[in-house]
Write a protein that binds this DNA or RNA. Structure first.
Lengths: 220, 220
DNA sequence: TACGACCAAATTGTATACTAAAAATTGGAG
DNA sequence: CTCCAATTTTTAGTATACAATTTGGTCGTA
């Protein structure tokens, strides 16, 4: 199944925004993009409609479409909601996890640990995302899983910067260990407690986040 | 500010789906819709793209766009997530509510009570939605507010059916009373407890059963 | 009758042409 | 030189024309 051009363009734009190539406030010019992708304006417009619907861009009638990264306060709000969803997922997962599920998590966690030892941020991020995705699945609530994954992806660039903060990867690993131990014991409350701390940015030094944030947002 | 035709069409379709006029599986024919709305296919297509992105419809490449109502198990999952978001909102609201906020809630609640007395389901739904929306706002987390409102709107037709169940409106009122009382006392936990019961449709046991069932059966 | 290939109608996806609204520019008055 | 207004230019929104793909049916053959 080969995807439609309009969908491919949408995905490409989404990635370019998330990667930071298309910074906040950047005007997404229909003609320019149509030249870039070698198609007419029609599929580009459809891609932009979908982008705007998902919240990554804002469409102003008869003005154009603009990349809209969240403000700092919106970011904090999003992390707050993310923490709640992760908590919910881990609570459900603790009740429903099978031995196989937990084994898979353990395996990912060890890969994470290796990445930390090698100081491989990219690898760590990748496996970490898989681990969290697995927990969403384990919750048994596929709607929750899809919502959590959506938010997770949207917070991706910020989460990644957060990991660059010195010592954050090690700290994160320790939390993973506690969460997994709680899961193994079926201790839903313990897992939730740690997960909340794990996600919420309040645990991180606020200044670190702000400086990362400014670095990302600084370039237009 | 007058909205663009493509946006108006999107909103109209969304409403028609939610109202049940366009039932599950209904094919959204581009030509037919363009005739219906008296415009060309272009704005209709853009409206359909947005609908698909928001999850109300599904777009199959070169086949068409179809209304996709959630299955029973998806519905249960969505209510489960809704309950979690409502809990979060009420927890935050309990900490941040001002006297004015609570007065406004009380007023809505009394209007609700009048609607129950008159057995006016439509009115009850309307004011009930406003009351919940107010709680989202009171949480102080605007991202949470927008997400909760989105889900609330999407669950609207099912919530409405639920209210037709005999005695459900009265029961719902009683819960509102308890929640408001807890809010007035700043009792976040009490408010959350009741809210959880208030939202969850069938009870946690059933959710667990359906979720495990789906996991076993491999239905994603 | 059953099955398969091929053709035709319908419908989606894309390109292009046209319209209308907003930004940019130019020209003049003060 | 500055400010404002009219005009030009650019660009978003829409219509229409065309291409590509699926689908249903028909015809022919085993």
């Amino acid at each position: 199944m080969d995807r439609l051009p309009s969908v491919k363009i949408r995905d490409s734009l989404e990635q370019r925004i998330v990667e930071g190539e298309l910074g906040n406030g950047k005007r997404l010019d229909e003609t320019e993009l149509s030249r870039f992708y070698g198609v007419s304006r029609t599929p580009v417009r459809e891609a932009l409609q979908r982008l705007a619907e998902s919240g990554l861009a804002e469409h102003l009638p008869r003005r154009g479409t603009f990349v809209r990264s969240p403000s700092l306060s919106q970011l904090v709000e999003m992390f707050e909601v993310m923490a709640e969803l992760e908590c919910m997922a881990i609570r459900l997962a603790a009740r429903r996890a099978t031995a196989n599920d937990i084994d898979a998590l353990e395996k990912d966690n060890e890969t994470c640990r290796a990445a930390v030892a090698a100081n491989d941020t990219k690898k760590y991020y990748e496996v970490n995302a898989r681990l969290h995705g697995r927990i969403y699945q384990m919750s048994g609530n596929s709607f929750l899983a899809s919502e959590a994954r959506r938010l997770h992806d949207r917070l991706r660039p910020f989460r990644r910067l957060q990991l660059r903060v010195r010592g954050r990867m090690e700290e994160s690993m320790a939390e993973h260990d506690i969460i997994l131990a709680a899961l193994r014991d079926g201790d839903a409350n313990g897992a939730m407690e740690t997960m909340k701390k794990h996600i919420t940015i309040v645990g991180v030094r606020f200044n670190d986040l702000v400086s990362s944030f400014n670095r990302i947002m600084g370039d237009e």
